[in-house]
Amino acid sequence: NKFNKELQWATWEILNLPNLNEEQVKAFIDSLRDDPSQSANLLAEAKKLNDAQA
């Protein structure tokens, strides 16, 4: 389904953001699992944090 694909994509993207530490990655992945419908928003937040920590 749509959420499953978005969840998989967001998870992959977050795992590959180079500037997030392990705790941050875990927190984003946990949030994705808690509410897959928020995957686009969570991915945007993760990318923003990744850029800020570059």
Score class of each variant (00 low, 15 high):
residue 48 K to S: 10
residue 33 R to K: 15
residue 11 T to F: 14
residue 41 N to F: 14
residue 11 T to D: 03
residue 9 W to Q: 13
residue 8 Q to F: 06
residue 4 N to A: 13
residue 45 E to P: 00
residue 6 E to Q: 05
residue 17 L to V: 01
residue 37 S to W: 07
residue 38 Q to Y: 14
residue 36 P to K: 02
residue 2 K to I: 15
residue 9 W to V: 08
residue 54 A to W: 09
residue 47 K to P: 00
residue 39 S to M: 14
residue 53 Q to E: 05
residue 19 N to Q: 04
residue 37 S to T: 14
residue 33 R to F: 15
residue 33 R to G: 08
residue 54 A to P: 10
residue 48 K to E: 08
residue 25 V to A: 13
residue 14 I to L: 10
residue 10 A to G: 03
residue 43 L to F: 05
residue 46 A to N: 00
residue 18 P to Q: 09
residue 53 Q to A: 07
residue 37 S to Q: 08
residue 50 N to W: 01
residue 13 E to Y: 12
residue 34 D to T: 08
residue 14 I to H: 01
residue 35 D to T: 08
residue 48 K to M: 11
residue 32 L to M: 12
residue 9 W to S: 08
residue 36 P to N: 03
residue 15 L to R: 07
residue 14 I to W: 01
residue 5 K to P: 15
residue 47 K to A: 05
residue 18 P to A: 11
residue 3 F to E: 15
residue 4 N to H: 14
residue 30 D to Y: 05
residue 1 N to S: 02
residue 29 I to W: 03
residue 27 A to V: 10
residue 40 A to W: 06
residue 28 F to L: 04
residue 50 N to E: 01
residue 5 K to D: 15
residue 51 D to P: 01
residue 11 T to P: 01
residue 14 I to S: 01
residue 18 P to D: 06
residue 16 N to P: 00
residue 12 W to V: 07
residue 14 I to F: 03
residue 23 E to M: 07
residue 46 A to S: 02
residue 26 K to V: 12
residue 44 A to V: 11
residue 8 Q to S: 06
residue 31 S to T: 09
residue 22 E to Q: 12
residue 16 N to E: 07
residue 4 N to V: 13
residue 26 K to S: 10
residue 8 Q to W: 11
residue 39 S to A: 10
residue 44 A to P: 02
residue 36 P to T: 05
residue 37 S to K: 08
residue 25 V to H: 05
residue 7 L to V: 11
residue 24 Q to H: 03
residue 52 A to I: 12
residue 49 L to K: 04
residue 33 R to T: 14
residue 26 K to I: 10
residue 4 N to K: 03
residue 27 A to N: 14
residue 6 E to N: 04
residue 1 N to E: 15
residue 50 N to S: 09
residue 46 A to G: 02
residue 45 E to L: 10
residue 13 E to M: 14
residue 15 L to N: 09
residue 51 D to N: 12
residue 7 L to I: 09
residue 8 Q to H: 04
residue 3 F to S: 15
residue 7 L to W: 06
residue 31 S to E: 08
residue 29 I to K: 02
residue 36 P to G: 03
residue 15 L to S: 10
residue 27 A to D: 12
residue 53 Q to V: 06
residue 3 F to A: 15
residue 31 S to M: 13
residue 42 L to N: 02
residue 52 A to F: 10
residue 28 F to D: 00
residue 10 A to M: 06
residue 5 K to R: 03
residue 1 N to L: 01
residue 19 N to Y: 14
residue 7 L to T: 05
residue 14 I to K: 00
residue 30 D to A: 15
residue 51 D to Y: 10
residue 30 D to M: 05
residue 46 A to R: 00
residue 47 K to R: 13
residue 36 P to I: 13
residue 10 A to L: 07
residue 22 E to M: 11
residue 33 R to A: 14
residue 10 A to Q: 03
residue 40 A to D: 06
residue 2 K to N: 15
residue 9 W to I: 15
residue 23 E to N: 11
residue 28 F to Y: 06
residue 8 Q to L: 08
residue 53 Q to M: 13
residue 13 E to N: 06
residue 5 K to S: 12
residue 47 K to V: 09
residue 39 S to Y: 15
residue 54 A to V: 09
residue 27 A to W: 10
residue 37 S to D: 05
residue 28 F to N: 00
residue 2 K to S: 15
residue 40 A to S: 13
residue 17 L to R: 00
residue 31 S to F: 07
residue 21 N to L: 09
residue 3 F to V: 15
residue 14 I to G: 01
residue 10 A to Y: 10
residue 20 L to D: 00
residue 47 K to T: 07
residue 23 E to G: 11
residue 26 K to D: 12
residue 22 E to W: 12
residue 13 E to G: 07
residue 3 F to P: 15
residue 1 N to V: 03
residue 6 E to K: 03
residue 39 S to W: 15
residue 28 F to Q: 00
residue 13 E to L: 06
residue 35 D to E: 06
residue 7 L to M: 05
residue 32 L to S: 01
residue 34 D to F: 10
residue 9 W to N: 11
residue 9 W to K: 12
residue 14 I to N: 01
residue 54 A to T: 10
residue 6 E to T: 04
residue 4 N to P: 15
residue 7 L to Q: 03
residue 19 N to S: 07
residue 4 N to D: 15
residue 18 P to R: 06
residue 54 A to D: 09
residue 45 E to S: 08
residue 1 N to M: 01
residue 29 I to L: 13
residue 3 F to N: 15
residue 47 K to Y: 12
residue 7 L to Y: 05
residue 25 V to G: 03
residue 27 A to M: 11
residue 26 K to P: 00
residue 31 S to R: 10
residue 10 A to R: 03
residue 53 Q to P: 04
residue 29 I to A: 03
residue 13 E to H: 10
residue 43 L to T: 05
residue 35 D to S: 10
residue 32 L to E: 00
